[in-house]
């Protein structure tokens, strides 16, 4: 576990609204899970408007990452522990 900056990640979308981010996650994921706001990834509470969707594709996590001055990004992160955590604790959705 650690900071996103220390992980291997790519950015799928930037300066999105949260709704746009949700659609990008849905359309790029093979598995989708709903989690509550405040769900922890990389030891940090996820920020988001419910329903909060986390996707998985190619064993990588796809989720929205919001910063106050930079809006919402959609990131693809290599985080095997996070993938396991989401599969165990998220609610599978279509």
């Amino acid at each position: 576990m650690g900071c996103l900056e220390n992980m291997n990640y790519e950015i799928l979308g930037r300066n999105c609204s949260f709704k746009e981010a949700r659609e990008i996650i849905r359309s790029n994921s093979t598995e989708k899970y709903e989690v509550p706001p405040g769900f922890k990834l990389l030891e940090k509470a996820l920020i988001g408007v419910p329903p909060l969707i986390i996707g998985i594709a190619n064993e990588k996590l796809i989720y929205a990452y919001t910063k106050p001055c930079h809006g919402t990004f959609v990131v693809v992160v290599e985080d095997p522990e996070g993938v396991d955590h989401v599969r165990r604790n998220g609610k599978p959705v279509q």
């Binding site: 706001p37 405040g38 988001g48 919001t66 809006g71």
Partner: peptide, 15 residues
């Protein structure tokens, strides 16, 4: 004043 602020506040309401 922006979508990020709304997103943070929505999260706050939920938690």
């Amino acid at each position: 004043h922006n979508d990020a602020g709304l997103t943070y506040t929505s999260t706050t309401s939920a938690v």
